[in-house]
Design a protein around this nucleic acid. Structure first.
Lengths: 341, 341
DNA sequence: CTGAAAGCGCTAACAG
DNA sequence: CTGTTAGCGCTTTCAG
């Protein structure tokens, strides 16, 4: 009881393949009698058209490729789930790949997806790619006119639609919030200093300091390597100066910093306030619950998918756009109240 | 600069398509001279074979379909990441879909995947499917000889390879552990009572009670509905009887129970011990850190992928197997020490 | 109303 | 060494 094809049905009824095709697609060209019989037979034998053949013929696959650097990161799974939602609504399927933050894997994945496997691609760059700043594999897609949407970690060397978070403003806003609660020595801990996203947040941080006439001190920015011992680095930081606020650029780091700081006997937020990026479940359930920057991942996913689908279904070559999503601060218990309230 | 095909290359060199095909595939049948020229031209023009055509011809896609009920659940993302790892190693791609715990969506997804889109499928059933107990869509796949591996939430009505967690033993082990630390009134909170998995855990729980000569009390098993108010249900539970241990059947529930219990002024683990299923990040970072049942998600994913790939590449129709993965208890701070230690 | 033919892009058996 | 032919499964003119 293996796959049944139009050909086989045609043999059964002693008609041509094209007749069967039309019958099954309910064409008016076929007599109701024959149509009925064939349709019934098809149903009984669970005929299912071969998608491959269909796609080959119609030169589209109705599927969109998604590439994320890391699925164990809550932000990306949120985005993913947003993409999934609208893709599903609009009848598209998702072919999803993980680059694992590796440049090579990203290149391979994109090559695969480029081979007529999908009609369009949504991607956030691997960290290594941003570090090496090699964009040829994206350029290839663009050259081949494969609709492409980049989100979060994007490059302005690539001409395509983009959806980004306003990370600069987020860093600025966060720092300002610390200052407005009476903190004066704000440190930053980043594990993503190779990514544009991380850099922008630090820039925003600098701007806020500048506006408050606080000199920028590079020693207060802790840049983590993969194998760095966070605990050690935090010790150094706290010995270096009496910091009273820490902005952590991803959720895991924020949670870890919280743990370490508590372990060392500091009270959060009385002694040290903490704000983390990515408003995931961890932030909510940790004690004290972390004030965090929400990047609205699900929304970003939805937006990216909508933009891509529009681009795919629309031939008018309108200009590429960059959609910037504002973040919002979700207040919880790891920060003090504002002084003026 | 759109897609370039064999045909076009053939025209350029005034040779036949098959010659080009052979040249590009580095066949010894072609003169080194011609081969060189064609290969170079292909490279320069970024020739990439049309995967669709290839797949149609070779009747395989080198991709495997993965269907999980919910990507925001840490267990599934772990499994997913395990699958991804071995698929990648063995040169397979992943087409991943989310059933969103919905029967209808699962049926649709499987229909899609069945249409020659993938060579094999790995799936964990939607809760609704388990509830309705309708398995026709799986049977279809089996009938069509599409290799299928079910994991975690499986049905024994479907003849295929399976990878399951030893949930019965996990429930048993967990309950026993509570008892061994001096707890005597163990409650269960489940949000997945419709799934085989949840049921088995409760069965194991009953067995442990039975062996300890503790009568089973159905009121101690809190079965949650989507819209149930957990806080309220826990209040009832705690008023009903002085429970000193709670086993929560998924991570979110465990964390919520912990929060609620702490809020009510109970000390964890002194007054009430808690163990949750799924050993994810949440469990680790919550205060106190939750003792949890690890289902070894990544390992399950790897196993499922390996079994599927073997089945796909191997034509010998060997019998279907069910691999059972033992859980382990990860000790942290939400439980007391064993009395005998 | 039904069928023959062409073609999507590619490979492979078989001639030449 | 290179080309011809056939075919994967399906749709779509265009004839009949």
């Amino acid at each position: 009881m293996k796959k049944i094809t139009l050909k086989k049905i045609a043999q059964v009824f002693n008609v041509s393949v094209s007749t069967v095709s039309k019958a099954i697609n309910d064409s008016h060209e076929i007599s109701d009698d024959l149509k009925g019989k064939i349709q019934q037979y098809a149903k009984e034998n669970k005929y299912r058209p071969n998608k491959l053949a269909l796609n080959l013929r119609q030169k589209k696959t109705k599927t969109i490729g998604v590439v994320v650097p890391n699925i164990l990161n809550y932000f990306f799974t949120q985005v993913f789930s947003g993409i999934e939602k609208v893709a599903n609504e609009k009848g598209y399927n998702l072919l999803s790949c993980i680059s694992d933050e590796s440049y090579d894997k990203e290149v391979k994945t994109l090559e695969f997806l480029g081979g007529n496997t999908v009609d369009g691609i949504i991607i956030s760059m691997a960290e290594e790619t941003q570090f090496k700043n090699k964009m040829d594999h994206f350029q290839n897609l663009v050259d081949e006119r494969i609709p492409l949407v980049m989100f979060d970690r994007v490059s302005n060397e690539v001409a395509c639609d983009k959806v980004v978070v306003d990370d600069y403003e987020a860093g600025y806003k966060t720092t300002n919030y610390f200052l407005s609660t009476g903190c004066s020595t704000v440190a930053v801990v980043t594990a993503i200093d190779h990514s544009s996203v991380g850099r922008l947040r630090v820039e925003g941080y600098k701007k806020a300091l500048d506006e408050a006439n606080i000199p920028y001190d590079d020693k207060l920015v802790v840049r983590l390597d993969k194998k760095d011992d966070l605990e050690l680095r935090i010790s150094f930081l706290l010995n270096y100066k009496k910091v009273d606020a820490i902005m952590a650029l991803d959720e895991m780091t924020a949670v870890e910093v919280l743990r370490i700081v508590k372990n060392k006997g500091y009270k959060v937020p009385e002694d040290i306030s903490i704000i983390g990026f990515t408003n995931g479940k961890l932030s909510r359930y940790v004690t004290p619950a972390l004030t965090s920057v929400s990047q609205h991942g699900t929304y970003i996913g939805e937006a990216a998918a909508n933009i891509l689908i529009e681009r795919m279904e629309d031939n008018s070559n309108r200009d590429f756009s960059t959609l910037t999503i504002k973040t919002s601060l979700v207040m919880r218990d790891s920060t003090k109240k504002r002084l003026d309230q």
